[in-house]
């Protein structure tokens, strides 16, 4: 979550007495070098990674690339079918995770105050869920959605697996948004004998909207970035999917497949990576700024 980054005590005021004992002076200098070095290393890594993807990927991207189907295992052609499959998986994921996530977050923030066993159980299990490695989600999705429920390798299986995966992050950020709404509103609504449902729909959700949307975007970002959970659930057929029961290849899997299994697929892998990174940067940027705008400004509603 973005917060104002201005330090309470800035670097300038901290350590005003740096010209103390000489051995401290040396330690201070060495430490400063390490700190600046780390920051430089992180920045350099960022520039190297993003630079590499942008410079090498830019040539591959064109309108043609986005709208044509992949050819010869993805070496040639574009990524239209991949984009469609990605959207399909994302759509299924959101259709399931939004109601479930919103419901759970509302329960946690509005109906489980104090010592509530159910609330504690849900919270604890979500904490564990948040840490489960994505490949384990892949195993589970394969065993449960593909085999046990018989959905096979399909967009449906992939979307449902991702829904399980983004649920913790979605719930956590929605709950934060709901808790940020001043308690005054809830008390006032109770004193007016408004029903909880009306209070939630008319007062709470509009007031928390920016937080909810930011949480949603974070979830979308997480889902779009995911690869390992999808290999064995949505599969990697690169044809145009005709229904949610068809296998479909997500952007991230396309990158993996082109890089590892298709000799000569590198150029299009760069292109796809640039599309994916670009997409995610936009999503994260919007989420961050939405939160900042609404946190700093007044919460208002139509």
């Amino acid at each position: 979550m973005p917060e104002p980054t201005r330090p309470l005590v800035s670097g300038a005021t901290l350590g005003a007495g740096r010209h103390g004992a000489s051995q401290n002076n040396l330690a201070d200098t060495v430490f400063g070098v390490l700190v600046w070095g780390s920051a430089l290393a992180v920045t350099a890594g960022f520039l190297w990674l993003v630079g590499e993807i942008v410079v090498s990927g830019f040539g591959a991207i064109s309108w043609e690339f986005l709208t044509s189907e992949p050819a010869s295992s993805g070496r040639a052609g574009g990524i239209s079918t991949i984009l469609v499959a990605t959207l399909g998986i994302l759509g299924i994921c959101l259709a399931v995770s939004i109601p479930l996530g919103l419901g759970t977050a509302l329960f946690l923030s509005e109906f489980s105050q104090g010592e509530n066993r159910m609330g504690r159980f849900v919270r604890a299990s979500l904490d564990v869920l948040a840490g489960v490695p994505s490949i384990v989600f892949g195993l589970f999705g394969n065993a449960f959605f593909c085999v046990a429920l018989g959905f096979g390798f399909s967009i449906l299986s992939g979307g449902l697996t991702l829904a399980c995966m983004v649920l913790p992050i979605l719930i956590r950020s929605i709950e934060l948004g709901l808790r940020a709404v001043p308690n005054d509103y809830r008390v006032a609504a109770a004193a007016l004998d408004l029903s909880k449902s009306r209070m939630i729909v008319r007062v709470l959700l509009p007031a928390a909207a920016p937080g909810l949307i930011a949480g949603l975007l974070l979830g979308i970002g997480r889902a779009t970035a995911e690869t390992a959970a999808l290999i064995f659930t949505s599969g990697y057929v690169d044809r145009m999917p005709e229904s949610v029961f068809d296998s479909g290849r997500a952007l991230s899997i396309h990158i993996y497949d082109l890089a590892m299994n298709v000799p000569g697929g590198e150029a299009n892998a760069y292109g796809t990576a640039l599309v994916l990174v670009g997409l995610l940067l936009v999503i994260n940027f919007v989420a961050t700024h939405l939160v900042e705008r609404f946190v700093s400004g007044r919460i208002q509603s139509a």
Binding site: R6, P7, V35, V42, L49, A225, Y256, A269, L280, N284
Partner: peptide, 30 residues
């Protein structure tokens, strides 16, 4: 938190946030 002037700190934080959002498959490819 302690070394960068506020503007630089803000920019640096954005960089770190962007890095956190980059998918693992892109790290792998890179």
């Amino acid at each position: 938190r302690f070394y960068a002037p506020p503007k630089l700190a803000r920019a640096f934080r954005s960089i770190v946030e962007l890095l956190a959002g980059i998918p693992s498959v892109v790290y792998g490819f890179w």
